[in-house]
Nucleic acid binder design. Structure first.
Lengths: 199, 199
DNA sequence: GTCTATAAGACGATAGAC
DNA sequence: GTCTATCGTCTTATAGAC
């Protein structure tokens, strides 16, 4: 084992990762605003100052918790963007996001359920535009308002669908049901104004 | 004008209602946890102590802001429960909730986007069970897991669908699109295991 | 009904010893 | 890498004058 740097996290260490793990649990339980550095320190059995050795601000802990999953979403969006048909782009992104949600169930709720997180994410220019970019790939170039509403409902609903309904479901069952919801919401409908295809 | 009590708020007064109005604005802008009593007082041009004359705790302000709309939802749920067919119950509740969302756009986001609100609402036994009760009426007596996931996605997605997509839409257009989403998600599908009807 | 003043404590963050 | 100790600020909430 060398001390070479990891690609995603500068100076990754055991202590640093313990902080991230404890923060993830607490953020999921009580929200980011509802979690103090004292609580993170208590869960690890250390003091606040020890936590500050690994991260110089709370904001950096939030980013460290959230960034890996968001980077994964960005990769999935790139994969989807390479597809030539919009129907396939939608399907690739849909399956990719749902799969990611299943693998990181708790994380999705953290991002979606705290206004403070949005402000922190807005700091990072790549992360800031991710939400809009997802919606854009999900529904294609010139969407009608109905599609925008549907895409937003799906992306926001992912959180709760994964959380409160997860009671007795296996990962595979949950994935199937959420995918079904996504397809229902995002399937292209006939244009209300008449034309169904362009030459 | 007499000084008789209002049914919903004990000792309703102009000052009290100003506090509620200012709190509603701030909660919508910055979340409940992100709003201090100082901010509410500043917006009204008074001191914190003046706010404390009307409400003895922040918790009570949150309840005063949220309770009227939740009471309305409860009434709609009762109306829906009186219908004999499940399809009609779903439709009545669906239309009622969406209509309420349109009328109180900001409020829905407040309830959904702050874990602290959930804890406060859990204090009030009637309000606490409202979410589960809504899902129950929305999908009927013995729902399959897919319906539960769909109902949760719809109820959670309402918030974001109303907020970020509302850019250039009139209330009526937004209502139409959200209703369309709700019907797509909640329409009963064939049972995957075979039987489509019971004798 | 609104004010000043203040209590009592949590918060994020820092300095410096070990 | 973790500690003690602390700074300065913010928080909810109260007491008592006007």
């Amino acid at each position: 084992m060398t001390t070479q740097l990891d690609a995603t996290t500068p100076r990754a260490g055991a202590g640093r990762e313990k902080v991230v793990a404890a923060a993830l649990e607490l953020f999921a339980e009580r929200g980011v605003s509802g979690t103090s550095l004292q609580m993170i320190a208590d869960r690890l059995g250390v003091t606040k100052a020890a936590v500050y050795y690994h991260f110089k601000a709370k904001r950096d802990i939030v980013l460290a918790v959230v960034r890996p999953a968001l980077a994964e979403i960005a990769t999935i969006a790139e994969d989807a963007e390479r597809e030539r048909s919009q129907a396939v782009r939608t399907e690739v992104l849909l399956v990719g996001i749902v799969d990611l949600l299943i693998r990181h169930r708790r994380l999705y709720g953290i991002i979606e359920s705290d206004l403070a997180v949005g402000e922190i994410l807005a700091t990072d220019p790549i992360l800031a535009s991710l939400g809009e970019r997802l919606a854009a790939v999900l529904i294609g170039p010139d969407p009608d308002p109905g599609q925008i509403v549907a895409a937003n409902m799906f992306l926001a609903g992912l959180k709760s669908a994964g959380a409160s309904a997860a009671a007795g479901l296996t990962d595979d069952e949950l994935r199937t049901h959420i995918l079904d919801c996504g397809r229902r919401l995002l399937r292209r409908r006939r244009q209300p104004s008449g034309r169904t295809a362009t030459p």
